[in-house]
Amino acid sequence: MIYFAQYVCSGILLGLLYSMVALGLTVVYRSGRIINLAQGELVIVGGFLIWWFIVMTPLPQWWMGIIIAFALMGLLGLVIERAFFRPLIGQPIFSLVMMTIGLLLLLRGVVIATFGAKERPFPQIFSAEPVVLGPFSFDSALFWGGIIALLIVLALAWFFERTKYGLRFSAVAEDHQVAQSMGISVKQSVAVAWVLATILGGFASIVFFNGKIVTFLASEIGFRALPVALLAGLESVRGVLVAGIIVGIGEMLAMGYLNPITNGGMANIFPYIVMIVVVLFKPQGLYGWRVIERV
């Protein structure tokens, strides 16, 4: 029983990490109906930048490196929007998705060309000591990262739903032309969405790589977050919390109980099973926008 509880708690933390990555997908999707398959690459780029500025440059404080890396990530978001997606405004969804695949390969190539294909040790930003709560112990990066993720998601949900600036983004998510007729700059909203996505990628990279090895292979997290965003419903900001926790717990339980009898691997494919089930049976997800048909 104690194992079960430990799996569930770890699953929640893992799920919160997924939520943070999935939120990047959601924000970009809301702005322009783009399913960004390169979100995992953004996490990797964030990881390499942070590693570079903390380990390789003589900055006096580690947090300065993080700030510079985040600024560069934001800049990257602006560049991505301006160079790759603004020219595609009005093009079919297919072109947009193909462009994200192009972006994925391009970012991967740039990372390898810039930092080399070697694996890099990521600095220990959260302590290596596990956080112990009662009978449970948690990886400290996942623990604090989970709390950060929780705060970020709730803050963004509040922002989108309750503030006047956030309402602009919701209007853009609904209908670009209506948003424009209300005096909302759609281009600006899309640009902000990309900046948010890259910054979220940066946050996720800190939590994900803390004390581990940075390698571009880890970009799979972008794909693992896809089922979370789909389960939440691609428009739902708050929903990624619930969906992330469901997928995270499921994955940890699969790791604990199914992996031993399936020679491992069950945990790895669990999110994708969720994805297939969601697309087949509930394509709008748990909290996504249903198409409203009045009769």
Binding site: L167, S170, A171, E174, D175, Q177, V178, S181, E235, W289, I292
Partner: peptide, 9 residues
């Protein structure tokens, strides 16, 4: 034209 409300809000 066409009562373009923001449906889900």
């Amino acid at each position: 034209e066409g009562r373009r409300v923001l449906e889900h809000l």
